[in-house]
Design a protein around this nucleic acid. Sequence first.
DNA 1: AAATCGTGGATTTTT
DNA 2: TCCACGATTT
Length: 757
Amino acid sequence: MELNVSENLNEKQKLAVKHTEGPLLIIAGPGSGKTRVITQRIAHLIEHCDVKPWQIVAMTFTNKAAREMKDRLETLFSGEEQHRINASTFHSFCAMLLRREAEFLSLNQDYSILDDTDQISLLKRVMDEVGIDPNQWKVRSIQSAISNAKSKLMTASAFRAGKNSYFEEIVDRVFTRYEELVSQSNAVDFDDLIMNTNILFQNHPEVLEKYQSRYLHVMVDEFQDTNLAQYQIAQQLAGLHKNLCVVGDPDQSIYSWRNADITNILSFKKDYPDATEISLEQNYRSTKTILAAAQKVISPNQNRVDKDLWTQNDEGSPIIIAEAYDEFEEARITLNEIQNLIDAGICKPDEIAIMFRVNAQSRVLEEACLKSGVSYQLIGGIRFYQRQEVKDIVSYLRLLNNFNDDASLARIINIPQRSIGKTTLSKLSEQATAGGCSLWDQIELVVNQTNGDKSTSFLNKRSLNSVQVFYSLMKEIYDESKDLDLQSKMDLVIERTGYRNYLQNMEHGEERIQNLNELRESSADFSSIEDEEGLDPLTIFLERVSLISDVDHLDDHVNSITMITLHQAKGLEYKAVFIVGMEEGLLPHSRSLEHPEQMEEERRLCYVGLTRAHSRLYLMRAFRRGFRGNYEPSVPSRFLMDIPSKLTLNKGGNITQRDSKILKKTVSAQKSIFATETKSPYEEYKERIRQKKINSSKKQNDYNAGDKVVHDVFGEGVVVDVKAIPSDFELTIAFKDGLGIKKLLLQLAPIKKLNNK
DNA sequence: AAATCGTGGATTTTT
DNA sequence: TCCACGATTT
């Protein structure tokens, strides 16, 4: 149980761990051992400062990070106590708190949490209701305006008071009604979780005081990605003891589009002028080469404070920069190299990640994996809980948990088909709106009212009948499932609603049924949950489902490579990292080209990607990329130009000085709104690359079957076969020393001819 | 109410 | 190009 915290920590880390009184700001560069510092600090508090585990609350960015923190503490302490440490995301923390304190709110304990899709569908309903043309005003933009307001703690009425444009006028009309509908549904959206907690603290100081006195220490990880509303929560929780420790790195702030507020760090310094600031600058993760490249990429940002990152690690290998002809070849080359790394025993599959800017890029990569037989885990993409069949069953469960959940009811009322179509549903919803009640209440009303007399209903006889059937079905399921455990409840729903049948008659039905089995599995832990607050296991399960993220599913030690977006990769690390799509328009993304601030965020995103790598970094791009049907020639990412060539090795498609000139021209031309001005550098570039392609294909004559070659990694070998493939050549080479026959791409393979001929 | 056809628009990132 | 949604048909 004795714990010596100062061991294995550098001086700055020790300072951070031993600072136990008052506000603390830790600026933690990438790979600076941040997680270790946080856990050691908690351990130190418990060990030496007589702080009880339950007096500490730690906010993390993902559930996975929270779990890992608990796991680490578990290895430091043998007892049960570490379980009482409150480590969770802001959203989970607030969700739990709101349930616990539901009596102070206009919510029931079993409220639903609306996800993105629920939100969109409610907003559509509202827009329809208040007569706003969805073609003229995009639902997404209204959603984001509302979310933005809430993350700044602005209520609908505050928004109304401050509205300042025609768009905001439109938003205001939707906002007000949306709020009504949500609260009538006994539901909250993601932003409400944070916002309502703030409001609760404001309206009921006694509740706040309870938590303030309980939590002696408050920690916030990934502070650069919190929004104002979240910061406010942290501040209030620490309001009594002032032991607020925030950890972050402004250079890794990549969620401003989700209203994360980079100025929170500045505010912190202002709000706590006596705060201690510690900057962790020694990097334990990456090679000197990778770290230097990352620094070069981030430093052009205007809006930042320079850090002096350093590492004792080796130089390591150069960063490989490679150009492929198109996205298919990019994927092939990437997978080929990955196989080399694995075959040569340099990396295990789970030490390798492919990262990309947008999910759409993953498909080609997936196919390449399948082709080459490399197993992978794809994070994100079509997210598990967003799959139709999963979402449907979850909606049924949500309805059973909270019949006022309009979003869920609207989703499943006609799935499987029950002859309750759009018109019937909109009539019901119209009446519900008029009567100020939920859809379910309205249905109940209709069914009961018309039990005797069917002619008075606003529905025709057939629809009415269908609605009645649905009503009694749900009632029956509810009654029967009351005392069942979670899994049996789920089974009951799947069978009795006819959902299983519905799937069976569908193409890919088996796959979907598999997904439901997986959902069933995932609920196993909740069936027997011992709940302290007297909550239904179903409620807890549903909360988990709403707040879980994709990275939470990431398995660390499976025998497969990881494919992940750059955003999701934050906080992770891999021995070898491939970033694909290093092109203007993709990274940096085209949406950021005209906005300097967004461009800085793209740069940070790239920086996050680069700093995930321990020892091997590959920056891939395609000369042309399929985009909405047609192919566009692409320009290498400006971020590549910032990496000094002495750190890199170019494979195919060197970036020459002339390239950089062209790019510079392109970049400045892009600042102009008119695409025509960008045309000529594009054309020039395209033509030049074309020439280069022709030249490089001529190079193939260098290798013929029978040639002896030497490979950087595999050593000597003999060329067995040369095969032309689009824009490159595939060499089949038999290597010595039992390494066997390998297929390599000419453009990428680090091979030389042995000149004994 | 369901099935078919046609249009427009599109994906940046997600708790 | 592809998909999702809305309008039109049956």
